[in-house]
């Protein structure tokens, strides 16, 4: 057994493997397949202030080694989430990362406030701020595409949470310079970063010759995007190593299906990883990835801490 303990700022987790937001619902469904407390943490589906129906169907299209989704952040709203879902996660002893979002910066703050004042906040080990969603006040431009909006949201959320609560800003790779967005989020007080959210795509149904998703565009995820995730983590971790931005923990997500996939993101600079779309293929995937990562580290005589960012140290100097 390799030492899988990971440190994310002040937060220590027994292992680095988590679910990815929106790919594990709020826990009950996967708990039928494995014990959620086996994971480093459980990440909840992004929750907003009010209930949301989400988008029309079809909401999905399968693509080569991946899929497109346009769920539209369907959810019960923060009040029902806290009383039903978070309370249940608390009761089973899970370590929980709650993913929050808003249509406006003020809504993010409202959701954070409700969360922090709930008794089950005790099981929350971190808050993931999903800034990869549209800002209604800014013509629907995604918060994480603009450094100013990103830092506003992170700053407002921080004011609502007890001091010291770890927060991770979740970034989209669909930007010109992800390092600039990472910098803005960290300057505004985020403990660390989660990278990456889905990439925007379109699939055309070749029988009907029209977009397959009712919502036209969707987010691309799965093994197909893993090299993009590795690249984004590499660039941001590289900027940290060079002192261009503050050093902070990175949670890697994008295309992880096996322990070796997880090791790639870790070697690029991630201190923890999330398993998303692979869970649809194999509901036991998050725990399997943990065990495979354990074996892969053992085979290389490394601890998890040794492996974080190791590829930067080992890259060939030309």
């Amino acid at each position: 057994m390799a030492d899988l303990t990971t440190r994310l700022g002040a937060l220590t987790l027994p292992n680095p493997v988590m679910t990815a937001s929106g790919c594990a619902a709020n826990g009950r469904e996967l708990h039928r397949f494995f014990d959620l407390t086996d994971l480093g943490a459980f990440v909840t589906k992004t929750v907003m202030a009010d209930p949301r129906s989400g988008r029309p169907t079809p909401r999905m299209a399968e693509t080569s080694s991946g899929m497109l989704n346009s769920i539209g952040l369907q959810g019960p709203g923060i009040a029902a989430f806290l009383d039903k879902d978070l309370t249940w996660l608390h009761s089973i002893g899970a370590r929980v990362v709650v993913s929050i979002a808003g249509n406006t910066a003020a809504e993010f703050a409202e959701v954070a406030r409700a969360l922090a004042s709930h008794p089950s906040f005790a099981c929350v080990v971190a808050v993931e701020i999903n800034i990869s969603c549209p800002n209604v006040a800014n013509r629907g431009l995604v918060f994480a595409c603009d450094p100013m909006s990103s830092s506003t949201v992170v700053g407002l959320v921080h004011q609502e949470l007890p001091p010291g609560t770890p927060t991770f800003a979740k970034l989209t790779p669909d930007v010109t310079d992800i390092v600039a967005i990472a910098d803005a989020a960290l300057q505004a007080g985020a403990t660390g970063l989660t990278m990456i959210n889905t990439l925007l795509g379109i699939v055309i149904d070749t029988d009907r010759l029209r977009p397959q998703l009712a919502g036209i565009t969707g987010g691309l995820s799965g093994p197909a995007i893993r090299p993009v995730a590795v690249r984004a983590i590499w660039q941001v971790a590289g900027a940290m190593r060079e002192g261009r931005i503050d050093t902070a923990p990175i949670i890697g997500v994008g295309g992880i299906r096996t322990g070796l996939d997880a090791l790639e993101l870790i070697a690029a600079g991630a201190s923890a990883v999330q398993v998303g779309t692979a869970t649809f293929n194999d509901p036991s995937a998050p725990r399997r990835v943990r065990d495979e990562l354990d074996a892969a580290l053992d085979a290389r005589a490394l601890t998890l801490a040794d492996a974080v960012g190791i590829a930067h140290r080992r890259k060939v100097q030309l």
Binding site: E29, M60, E62
Partner: peptide
């Protein structure tokens, strides 16, 4: 019958 990605309740693609 609606398009399903996971069948187990975690993806929210199969709603109606």
């Amino acid at each position: 019958e609606e398009s399903m990605a996971c069948g187990v309740g975690v993806c929210m693609t199969c709603v109606m």
